[in-house]
């Protein structure tokens, strides 16, 4: 299976990060992971990466409820950035609040809203979307 350059996981839940990384590794899709534990760290880190242009993530999994800067605040900053390539961004949250799901639809940058827990199947689907985008 084709690989993606790197995946960025933004979540304060280290168990989720651990499991998501494991699954992605096991599917042999991706070897590079960039991990941030809140929105602010992610904005800072991604800005640096965009400057160097190395290992720019193709896939971002974003949690909503995080300390310091939550997923929505991150998105508001993120869409202002000049992102050098097409990126697939998923909200991955435990929230099944219809308000959140509705809000997610208002952001063009969001590919989909995935309700936790994620399974191997979900993840493979997500990555498939990344490849679809590249073929566009």
């Amino acid at each position: 299976m084709k690989q993606i350059e790197s995946a960025c996981l933004i979540d304060d839940d280290h168990i989720f990060i651990f499991a998501a990384k494991k699954i992605l590794l096991a599917t042999d899709i991706c070897q590079n992971f960039i991990i941030y534990n809140n929105g602010a760290d992610a904005i800072e880190g991604l800005s640096e990466i965009i400057k160097t242009g190395k290992n720019v993530p193709d896939l971002i999994l974003l949690d909503i409820n995080m300390p310091i800067m939550d997923g929505w605040q991150f998105l508001d900053e993120f869409i202002k950035m000049k992102y050098p390539k097409k990126v697939t961004l998923y909200i991955v949250s435990s929230s099944i609040d219809p308000v959140d799901i509705k809000k997610a639809k208002e952001y063009e940058a969001i590919t989909d809203f995935i309700i936790k827990p994620i399974t191997r199947k979900n993840l493979i689907n997500m990555v498939a979307t990344v490849f679809d985008k590249e073929q566009d």
Partner: peptide, 16 residues
């Protein structure tokens, strides 16, 4: 919400 994330994590870990 909070309980969901915990039960989700356990499910995920077991799956893994």
């Amino acid at each position: 919400h909070n309980l969901r994330s915990h039960s989700g994590n356990i499910q995920m870990l077991l799956d893994l």
